[in-house]
Structure formats: structure tokens, C-alpha cells
Computed example of a mutant assay.
Amino acid sequence: MTDTTPLNLSTAMPWLAPAFQSLVERFESGRLPHALLVEGRSGVGKALFAMALAQRFVCDSPHGPGRCGQCRQCQLIDGDSHPDIRRYRPEKSRVIKVDQVRALGEFAVASPQLAARKIIVLETADQLNTSAANALLKTLEEPVEDVTLILLQRAGQTLMPTIRSRCQSLTLPLPETDVARTWLHDALAADSMTVGEEDPERALRMAGGAPLKALSFLREGMLAQRDECLNAFRAFLKSQQPVDEASKPFVSIGIEATLDLMEDWTLDMARFAAGGCGRDADAAPVLRFLAGHNSPGAAHTLRDAITESRRGLSYNLSPALETERLLVHWQSLMPRRQQRA
């Protein structure tokens, strides 16, 4: 499934179909906002949703909610060369930089070349550095009639309030468990992937029910890597491994995956502190132990530290040093007798 494949969301991703249909109806009645902020969990399908919208909005002969796949506009889309659709995302960096947003602004004020309007998709809007966010704000404050901006934001990540206030927000839902399970099994079959009997369920659980993220876990062998991270995490908390050794499996999966994993753990810890259940069954014993030996606010303080690390991604921080800093923060939550042991 590529970004240029005509996508029938009703069948390919049914959990996104109602939101998609609603926006198509608003577009056809002339009520589409000039800037749309699409929010949702990582792996729910935001990027595919946005590109399907962009393609539908420039198609000359749309069929119902989808594009026709036959007109001149669709031919250019299929060749990944439509001049009136632009997609911006981090390049050779973990953040979207100001030069990219300036290019976005220049594209916005130019006239459409072939379609009746231009569509701009800005992925990971929560990964704009400060200069880029300020440059984007200028574009949002001076909307152009024939331009639609679609900004994508991961749920729970921060976005400059002045940017948010100039967009209409749409939150994409997670699918029901049975729908996610069916989608994942079909995707694995289409990939001819062979996985362990319990792996799809485990991947879905670790992905918080987001099917595309679960599929990514399985494709990349992330379950085994997460097991290595958890083993190192447990050993470090018990002072059985030095921090530089414990950080190695985390560094191997990358800083962003490390932050996602640790954030998931902090959320589970907060759930345990509130008397609830966690999503990561393998990490549950240690997280429940930490929740029981700390105040309810400990998880929130730790999550703030992870958020601070995310902000630091724009400054090319050292993944190893940042991972070690967070591991030490985790270990500070252990009772003193376990730390000494």
C-alpha cells in the first residue's frame, strides 16, 4: 500500500472512513478549512489519510469518496509527480527545519499549475523547531484561498498554541480491537510474513491498538528488540548492569523508538498508580512495583523528562547520553535498599 495507490478507506482502513467522508462533503460544499490539524496515535494511519485527502481534492473526476485513478491529475499522482501536492517531513534530521517551512510558504503563495488548488501535507507538525514553527505561523496567518494545509500531529505531543488556534482539529480514532486484529492479519498475509502465533496480539497490545504501528513492529523485528531493552532495564534498576551497558539495546533501536517505549512505560506506571491495568504485560511487574513505591506524580515527572528529551531532538543530542540520563531517572524511583543491592 503506497501513498499514490488509489485508497478506498472504507475497505482498506474502515476506522478512518467516517472522518474522510465528512471532510470530502465539506470540501464539495466549499466549507473545508484552509488549515486542518489531524491528530491521532502513532500508527493509526494519519499520513495515508492525509495523502488520500490530497489526492481526492485534486482529482478531476472523483468516484464517491475516492479519486478516479484515470484522469490527468491521477496519472501525475501515480507517477509521484503532481506539482500541486507537496509533502514536508524531516529530512536528514529529526525535525522539520525553517528552510523547509520557508519553501512551503513560497509554494503556498504561487498559483496552482494544473489543479484547481494546492494541497500541503506537513507531517509530524509536533517536530517543528522554534524557527520553523514561527515561519509556519506566518503562512497560517495569511491564508491563500486556493491552498489547503493538512498538519499531522501525534497524540500527546506538544504543538505551539498559536499554530493550533489557527487550524481546525480532527482526531482520528483507533479501530475497534476486532477490526485492528483483522486488518493486521490481512496485512501480514499480503506481506507473506510468518510470525509467531502470539506475536500479532502482542504487537497490537504494545502499539496501544494502532494497527500500522503493530505492523511496523513485526516487520522490523521490534518485539525481540523491545525484549532486550526490557531485560537491560530490569537489570539496571537492580544495579546488575552499569548504565552504559544497559543503554546499548535502547541506542540500537534509535532515540525516537526509545522515547516512545519509555513513554509507554510511564503511561502504564500511571495506570497502575491509579489502580488500572497496563498495556505492556511483560513490563507490568516492574512498572507495578515502581508505581507502588512512588507517589502518583512520579510517572508524570518522568514523562516530563521524556518530553524534554523530545524537544532536544532538534539540537542533535547524543542518543547514548540521553538514554543514560533517562535510565538514571528511572532508577531513582527504586527503593533505596534495591538501589544498594
Score class of each variant (00 low, 15 high):
residue 212 L to S: 14
residue 80 D to S: 14
residue 12 A to W: 03
residue 193 M to F: 06
residue 191 D to M: 13
residue 52 A to V: 08
residue 98 V to Y: 02
residue 288 R to W: 04
residue 288 R to I: 06
residue 161 P to T: 11
residue 73 Q to L: 08
residue 148 T to S: 08
residue 274 A to N: 12
residue 198 E to F: 00
residue 13 M to K: 05
residue 282 D to Y: 00
residue 191 D to K: 10
residue 334 M to P: 15
residue 271 R to W: 07
residue 101 V to T: 02
residue 16 L to M: 13
residue 82 H to M: 04
residue 77 I to H: 09
residue 16 L to C: 10
residue 36 L to V: 05
residue 228 E to Q: 15
residue 273 A to Q: 09
residue 51 M to F: 04
residue 151 L to R: 04
residue 36 L to P: 09
residue 189 A to V: 13
residue 1 M to L: 12
residue 142 E to T: 13
residue 255 I to D: 03
residue 147 V to M: 06
residue 186 D to N: 14
residue 247 S to P: 13
residue 298 A to C: 03
residue 12 A to F: 06
residue 26 R to L: 14
residue 127 Q to Y: 05
residue 194 T to W: 01
residue 299 A to G: 13
residue 332 S to Y: 00
residue 64 G to C: 06
residue 191 D to W: 07
residue 267 L to I: 11
residue 89 R to K: 14
residue 57 F to V: 09
residue 227 D to S: 10
residue 37 L to K: 11
residue 129 N to H: 00
residue 274 A to W: 00
residue 26 R to W: 13
residue 254 G to C: 11
residue 123 E to G: 07
residue 282 D to R: 06
residue 53 L to I: 03
residue 126 D to F: 01
residue 314 S to Q: 09
residue 103 A to W: 01
residue 306 I to W: 04
residue 136 L to Y: 04
residue 147 V to I: 12
residue 101 V to Y: 00
residue 105 G to Q: 03
residue 40 G to P: 10
residue 250 F to I: 03
residue 153 Q to R: 15
residue 31 R to C: 09
residue 34 H to G: 11
residue 62 P to S: 04
residue 232 A to Y: 14
residue 234 R to P: 07
residue 88 Y to M: 06
residue 101 V to A: 00
residue 325 R to H: 10
residue 113 Q to H: 12
residue 253 I to S: 12
residue 107 F to N: 03
residue 215 L to M: 12
residue 116 A to C: 05
residue 292 G to Q: 15
residue 253 I to P: 14
residue 305 A to G: 11
residue 174 L to A: 01
residue 301 T to K: 14
residue 62 P to W: 00
residue 36 L to K: 06
residue 98 V to S: 02
residue 232 A to N: 15
residue 305 A to T: 11
residue 272 F to V: 08
residue 302 L to E: 14
residue 50 A to V: 03
residue 42 S to A: 14
residue 287 L to F: 10
residue 182 T to M: 08
residue 220 E to K: 11
residue 246 A to K: 10
residue 89 R to E: 04
residue 157 Q to F: 05
residue 67 R to N: 09
residue 142 E to N: 11
residue 326 L to E: 15
residue 223 L to F: 02
residue 313 L to G: 05
residue 196 G to I: 02
residue 82 H to V: 06
residue 150 I to V: 15
residue 165 S to C: 01
residue 125 A to Q: 02
residue 111 S to Q: 03
